[in-house]
Design a protein around this nucleic acid. Structure first.
Length: 549
RNA sequence: CGGGGAGUGGCGCAGCCUGGUAGCGCACCUGUUUUGGGUACAGGGGGUCGGAGGUUCGAAUCCUCUCUCCCCGACCA
């Protein structure tokens, strides 16, 4: 069995505008890189050496977020929040384009309201923040305590998700079949008291979007569930350049209260899976709990079929682990707050003025150009400081294109251009600057940004495809595979008979021993023939198993 | 929540065992130098050592409690 390290051919597209043969080092080729060159990377930890620590370092080195002092909660810094805002803006448009209106519902949910759907309660009860008082008083020792006199008659829970309270509103808003479908969405924060937290991937408080819809019947609701799953796929692949596999979650992984749960799953560079978005068909469960009924064309009261779906700031974690490298983050141009940064090499001398003017001209011309369907987002970084130091700050942040301009560049009418996705000239271990004329650079940038966007996606997709293993058809072979493939075994596609209930529990237990989970049943499942890897019965579908975040 | 590790200027660390009111590298500030690339030299600012309590003449160093972070596990987006 081949090891992960040998399995990923660094597949590159040819650069359209360059003589630059540099390619960035990957997890799999780092050892090779080191033997042929002495590249001095911008981070102190390499992905191949300690992926978890590398992840932490990218977050601080790229200035994405920091600890807050509150357990499990983070401060999202401007660059990190800027990335989230880009995702938010693009996804919001997609959500509006599919007919939804944004609303806002309270962060506090009355306990009795939350209690209505049994499975929902069971799923979330153990990770709820609860508000019990509405006033503090002095404790007599210089501190403050909740005033016993100010106890709430009914506790409020901080929303971990809003199905129940939105269900309440839907019950009021829906009267007749003419009110359906009811398509709503909200952007909000939610709180889940997690045992173990990781920046962006699992925080106690996180930001997300939650869509909630009500429909006349099962067919309409299911169709909508799938429509939103497709919106998420497009957002992940087109905007984040993060390839995903869309499919249905197995019964044991369903959202509490859902009839069907669908997900998009992305493969991180360590081969683990990340659930990047979910879409649920809720049947009539929440309609029953909240009384969401409508009068049909015959005048009969009917229960609505509802859906809900969400993606969160976890997406940012996915971007880090999909596109980051040993020099920091690489932000796909579509979601980069700034796509191009111009760094004048200021020397604190009178000549600086002319240099800034030269750069400003370039900035203005780039800013009026369009790439990836929008105006190019370009920053002229006039902050005082050494250009080289500022360059490495931007490298770590992952801005797609860095343009440095020194006095001699200006004299020659050129600029020094650096692509973040291909930083190094591996032949000499130096940064792979190119020096096109300012005019050429200005004209080439839109196409370059589009190429970088495509290239990041291709790279991630090729890596994922190379790390999905097929043809394993016994549990022993699966065990052997995961025991012999080191730290980065990737995913395995197997066939199964889709056991349910206790039989499924047994399967889940067996997988747990290998630290594996069933990710999803891919939509394009392909032909199935042969036996279930777990039960030996005739297989009915293919599933992905993997270690997961 | 269980097991392990850790919290010392912005970041990374030493000091703690063998108590005597804090040190290094990077970053930062000032000056000089240098200038096509993560420059060099000199000078300088910044921390009371996560928090609370205790032992002691005296605690970053010893004891107790507590908060937060990291890794593994159970749980979960």
């Amino acid at each position: 069995m081949r090891r992960f390290a040998n399995r990923w051919p660094p597949c590159r597209r040819n650069s359209t505008n360059s003589t630059n043969r540099a390619h960035h080092p990957s997890v799999q080729t780092i050892k090779q890189e080191q033997s042929v060159s002495n590249i001095r990377h911008a981070l102190s930890v390499k992905r191949a050496d300690d992926f978890a620590q590398w992840y932490q370092e990218v977050i601080s080195a790229a200035d994405l977020a920091e600890e807050s002092g509150v357990r499990g909660c983070m401060v999202i810094k401007p660059w990190g929040y800027g990335i989230w805002e880009r995702i938010q803006r693009l996804l919001d448009q997609r959500i509006k384009d599919t007919g939804h209106d944004n609303c806002y519902f309270p962060i506090f949910i009355p306990l009795s309201n939350f209690e209505r759907e049994a499975e929902h309660v069971e799923g979330f009860a153990k990770e709820m923040a609860v508000v019990t008082h509405h006033r503090l008083i002095a404790d007599g020792e210089g501190g403050l305590i909740p005033d016993p006199e100010a106890k709430l008659e009914e506790p409020l829970v901080v929303r971990p998700t809003s199905e129940t309270i939105i269900g309440d509103a839907m019950a009021r808003w829906v009267q007749s079949w003419r009110d359906l479908p009811l398509l709503t969405n909200q952007w909000a924060n939610v709180v889940r008291w997690e045992m173990r937290t990781r920046m962006f991937l699992r925080t106690s408080e996180f930001l997300w979007q939650e869509g909630h819809t009500a429909h006349e019947n099962m067919a309409d609701a299911k169709e909508h569930t799938m429509r939103m799953l497709e919106v998420y796929r497009a957002c992940a692949e087109e905007d984040l350049a993060m390839p995903v596999i869309a499919g249905e979650k197995p019964e044991n992984e369903r959202f509490p209260g859902a009839v069907e749960t669908w997900s998009i799953e992305a493969m991180m560079q360590d081969g683990k899976a990340l659930q990047a978005g979910t879409s649920h068909y809720l049947g009539t469960n929440f309609a029953e709990a909240s009384g969401i009924r409508y009068q049909d064309r015959e005048g009969t009261q009917q229960l609505c079929h509802t859906t809900s779906w969400g993606v969160s700031t976890r997406m940012v974690g996915g971007v880090i682990m999909t596109h980051g490298d040993d020099d920091g983050l690489r932000v796909p141009p579509t979601i980069a707050p700034w796509q191009v940064v111009i760094l004048p090499m200021l020397r604190d001398k009178p000549e600086d003025d002319a240099l800034i003017e030269y750069c400003e001209k370039l900035r203005a011309s780039l800013a009026s150009a369009e790439a990836l369907g929008e105006k190019v987002r370009v920053l002229l970084d006039k902050k005082p400081g050494k250009a080289a130091a500022k360059r490495w700050d931007w490298v770590r942040k992952g801005v797609p294109v860095i343009i440095e301009v020194g006095g001699r560049d200006m004299e020659n009418g050129v600029v020094s251009l650096l692509r973040r996705d291909r930083l190094w000239n591996t032949e000499n271990g130096k940064t792979a600057f190119e020096t096109p004329s300012a005019e050429t650079a200005g004209q080439a940038i839109p196409a370059l940004l589009e190429e970088i966007q495509a290239s990041l996606f291709d790279e991630a997709r090729d890596r994922r495809d190379a790390n999905i293993t097929r043809g394993i058809d016994t549990l022993d072979a699966l065990t052997e595979f995961y025991n012999s493939n080191g730290r980065y075994p990737g995913w395995v596609e197997v066939q199964w008979a889709k056991p349910t209930g206790a039989a499924l529990d047994t399967v889940v237990e067996k997988l747990k021993e290998l630290k594996l989970t069933i990710r999803n049943v891919p939509m394009q499942t392909g032909a199935v023939d042969g036996a279930c890897i777990f039960t030996g019965e005739p297989a009915v579908e293919r599933i992905y198993v993997a270690r997961a975040y």
